[in-house]
Design a protein around this nucleic acid. Structure first.
Length: 581
RNA sequence: GCACCCGUAGCUCAGCUGGAUAGAGCGCUGCCCUCCGAAGGCAGAGGUCAGGGGUUCGAAUCCCUUCGGGUGCGCCA
């Protein structure tokens, strides 16, 4: 039920009819024809560019096409007026019944209102978080987790088959550092002074790991060289850290479908196979890279490396996949991992990275492009910094070494749901300010509160209606005489509700979950506005005396608003509240 | 030096695979609050969409270029 899509279909059909009637050349491409809510109220209720985009290929003037198109459209029951304006815009005014139909659709469809099939059941893999398993999640990870999760919800709602995936970076040197750090805590557990030297992880969160190691090994690892314990301690420590991270994610309300391990790629031939696949395409060669201009490292020496010809797929320079000692660079297992995702049959891949990984985007896209023969698009969303504040002052945790603002800190102070909503009030690629005081403020400045307050008012209307003896379940409301809702202010709210299915498609097309948050704010604003008008115009109040047809219709509108708010909040992963406390 | 991201009202930011007179919140000015929940409401002022050039019927949006801010640039992931 996307009214704008229906009107667009009507226009495309009319264009087809015009071609049959000889008024237009046959076989015109209508892909660029759009129908959208006009910004300006003076331009009708739905506007189309159809005549303008077809004018050139048809060899006709836009206004001539628009005139004939308008005449045909005016025949349709849903359209009460079709005007040609400006250079050839088609401005349509719709019958109130068309908007009222949206209210009924929302009531009938409930939580599925706005659900789309544009994904056509295609499979998309969303990889996000992928924090190193060397400690608890910190604030920097939170935004990526929320964006990835909300995007996954959005795509699922738009008809995609979504896999949420976490790539565990457990194959590099950082997990050796973790093991050595944990070993010091193990020594500490035996009453020895830990030697947390430079480069080790100093965080207190490893103390319990030391205890766990003591419980497991007793004193058998003390005074032994790391060749005796490194591998085992590494595995135990990374497992414990992953348990910690999974708990962090759960606290935020994020649940992954798949955890993939980098380490598991080693020794199985997967990396070698992926590299060989590229080599067979003549995309792997031995060569020497030029030093970066203007920022030459002091110790630069030309050296022969195994390189991936990523420039053949849009990168700026070729990238090394092997270190000079023959071991793989971090890029090699990443290539193998993405090859694995391609081989699992996904139709699209999405990676959510921190903005500091921006330099990694082109080579990863190049690798996926090469390994899938251009079949599988990879979209990489860069998530920018979160700056923490409290009452406008930069927020810092203790400067003591090893402490940082963790995900748990954020969730315990702001709550998971508020955090999720606030993290989506910016586009992913711009920095975001997060003020612990403001996000809990109960005022219009706070979008979470503003949207929830709208829903609470809706809950209030529903309660009052029930108390007055009305049957306000969705099935009863769907039978209400919605033709009684004709006031322009009510039509405005219905139009905003009608935008929801369209917004889902737009947001999903661009992989932009933040649009949902902005839409909810607009919808809440429209609802509050109508509520407030009821102060001056009693006929616009939602709660009307008596169990009349008018009362029922108004409650139906209120409930439809609630349906749209709930659907949007569900994508953000936020539970709507029926009451403010 | 190169690449990527960003630059929109005093501030923080939206802005739909290009669409009409560029929007919201805060702040500012004025008016209003016995009323379904005022946890406020209504109205107004405020813009060279960083600058310049190009493509187009039409550009905040696409291309080129300059400036400013951020991020990154071979054996860290």
């Amino acid at each position: 039920m996307n009214l704008f899509a229906e009107i667009r279909a009507l226009i495309v059909q009319s264009l087809h009819d015009m071609a049959e009637a000889g008024e237009l050349p046959a076989g015109l491409d209508t892909a660029a024809v759009a129908v959208e809510p006009p910004r300006d109220k003076g331009h009708g209720e739905a506007a189309s560019n159809a005549a303008m985009v077809l004018a050139k290929p048809a060899g006709l003037s836009p206004r001539a096409i628009a005139e004939k198109l308008a005449a045909r459209l005016a025949q349709d029951a849903r359209i009460t007026q079709a005007d040609v304006a400006g250079p050839g815009f088609l401005n349509l005014t719709l019958a109130p019944s068309a908007w009222q139909g949206v209210v009924r659709a929302a009531l009938v469809m409930g939580a599925d209102f706005g659900r789309s099939t544009t994904g056509q059941g295609r499979r998309v893999n969303v990889e996000f978080v992928s924090a190193n398993p060397t400690g608890p999640m910190h604030v920097g990870h939170v935004r990526g987790a929320v964006v990835g999760d909300a995007l996954s919800n959005l795509l699922a709602f738009a008809g995609w088959q979504v896999t949420r995936e976490y790539y565990i970076n457990d194959g590099g040197a950082q997990v050796d550092v973790l093991a050595r750090s944990a070993y010091e805590r193990y020594r500490e557990a035996h009453g020895l002074d830990p030697e947390i030297s430079e480069g080790l992880y100093p965080g207190d969160y490893l103390i319990p790991v030391g205890e766990a190691l003591k419980a497991r090994f007793g004193d058998s690892l003390l005074d032994k060289g790391e060749q005796y314990w490194l591998a085992e301690v590494r595995e135990i420590a990374t497992d414990l850290m992953m348990t910690e991270i999974k708990g962090d994610l759960a606290a935020l309300g994020v649940k992954m479908d798949v955890y993939s391990s980098e380490k598991a790629l080693y020794g199985t031939g997967q990396i070698e196979a992926a590299i060989k696949t590229l080599r067979d395409m003549d995309l792997i060669y031995e060569g020497v890279l030029e030093p970066p201009k203007g920022k030459e490292p002091d110790d630069w020496e030309p050296r022969v490396q195994t390189l991936f010809r990523s420039t053949a797929h849009g990168d700026d320079v070729d990238r090394p996949v092997q270190k000079s000692d023959g071991s793989w660079t971090y890029f090699a297992p990443d290539i193998a991992y993405h090859f694995n995702k391609v081989q699992r049959g996904f139709d699209e891949l999405i990676d959510i990275f921190g903005a500091d990984h921006g330099g990694y985007v082109k080579r990863m896209k190049a690798a996926v492009s090469a390994l899938s023969n251009g079949r599988v698009p990879l979209d990489i969303k860069l998530v920018n910094l979160v700056k923490l504040y409290k009452n406008g002052e930069p927020f810092k945790m203790s400067k003591r070494a090893g402490t940082f603002v963790t995900l748990r800190d954020v969730v315990s102070q702001a709550g998971a749901e508020v955090t999720r909503f606030m993290m989506l009030t910016r586009k992913n690629d711009v920095p975001l300010d997060f003020d612990f005081a403001k996000v809990l403020e109960q005022s219009k400045d706070n979008p979470v509160f503003y949207v929830q307050y709208a829903n609470a008012r809706i809950g209030s209307v529903m309660r009052k209606s029930t108390e007055s003896g009305m049957a306000v379940d969705d099935a009863s409301l769907a039978k209400a005489d919605l033709s009684l809702l004709t006031h322009p202010a009510e039509i405005d709210l219905m139009q905003k509700i009608a935008e929801w299915p369209r917004l889902v498609d737009i947001a999903a097309r661009g992989n932009e979950p933040h649009r949902v948050a902005f839409y909810l704010y607009e919808l809440a604003s429209e609802f509050h506005g109508l509520w407030n008008r009821g102060n001056d115009e009693p006929s616009l109040r939602f709660v009307q005396a008596g169990n009349t047809a008018t009362a029922l219709a108004k409650v139906a509108l209120v409930r439809a608003t609630g349906v749209a708010i709930s659907a949007g909040l569900a994508i953000l992963g936020v539970t709507p509240v029926d009451e403010m406390r």
